[in-house]
Design a binder for these strands. Structure first.
Lengths: 190, 190
DNA sequence: ACCTGAACACCGTTCAAGT
DNA sequence: ACCTGAACACCGTTCAAGT
């Protein structure tokens, strides 16, 4: 990733990827309001003109950042799915537990926000959601639900996960005990 | 609402409320990016200095807009709760149906976004969530769930609703048939 | 009490010109 | 191919001055 894409690139020259990497770093540590062209230029020691050679506009950068995030995210989820050895029940439990105390909501929220104004971001987020949905659906299926049940219940769970990440509201935060109850109930016969 | 709050106010003078009302209009019809001080000044035929007499900064305006939205929202929900005559089952159905095809997500999404940077907005959104949660919890209770079940299941439903509003992703959009299934299943005994 | 007018800092975007 | 430098439009914020 550190090597320039084309062999003709000069020594200190930047790649579009360099901008995206630094952008994701800033987004992660300082939030969306800090991701600005002027700020990136300061960090990378170039002027704004350089940015506009690599990207059409700010939206395009957001798209690249989103793709980077999507790749990382996908890998993390794949590791999680590699818990395939565990019984489906345990897999579900691990996924929801990860959701509740993981600090990665903030990123996800911002990406969803961006996806409203940028097609590329929307695509990356949709990919991620689809991936999670299938993991959950498979787990519920293995526990003996018929296909229709597995689909609607997986949808309910995944939507609830997204809602939990976006809520952070006055609603009661589920305890691990609640989660166990819900999973047991989700995976009962109809 | 059109009459100035203080009796000492001059004829053409603006109220803080006037700014909030116009702000909510713009937010509703053109989205969050259009809600800008300069734009409001154009619409209201005043200069920016006028804005800063009424509000400390842009965040303060957002807070006022949020409170306005919260009031409207609360009233709408109360009407919905006035379906108290209907069996609880029908109430749940009406609420979820309203969620699925209502076009009011966009507003809610923006308000949640704003609530991350403004305490007042966060308060208004929390109020709204709490209100919905109690409606759902009561309905589920009436259908014979014990208090603990009612709490966790209502949480699951409400979070799923929030997630659905924020998702708009690649996930399957639930049909009304799915909703009926889920409600029936939600309100079964453990 | 309520607003104007002018200023300032900051950001996104464009583009001719450099190497 | 990759970047500088300077310009422009636009927005948020401040503040002295007006009525």
């Amino acid at each position: 990733m550190r090597t320039p894409s084309a062999s003709t690139a000069r020594a200190g020259a930047l790649t579009a990827d360099d901008w995206a990497v630094r952008g994701l770093e800033i987004l992660t540590t300082e939030g969306p309001r800090a991701v600005t062209i002027a700020r990136l230029c300061r960090d990378l020691n170039v002027t704004k003109g350089s940015f506009y050679w690599h990207f059409a506009d700010l939206e395009a950068l957001k798209g690249s950042i989103a793709q980077l995030w999507c790749a990382q995210n996908r890998q993390q989820l794949t590791e999680l799915a590699a818990l395939n050895e565990l019984p489906a029940h345990e897999r579900l439990r691990a996924m929801t537990a990860g959701l509740i105390d993981d600090g990665a909501w903030a990123l996800q929220r911002t990406l969803r926000e961006w996806s409203r104004t940028d097609e590329r971001v929307a695509g990356a987020v949709a990919d991620s959601d689809q991936f999670v949905f299938e993991l959950v659906q498979d787990a519920i299926s293995e526990l003996g639900a018929d296909p229709r049940q597995a689909r609607t219940r997986a949808g309910l769970l995944v939507y609830a996960g997204i809602g939990f990440a976006h809520g952070q509201t006055a609603l009661p935060k589920p305890t691990m005990e609640d989660v166990d109850d819900l999973i047991a109930w989700l995976t009962e016969g109809s």
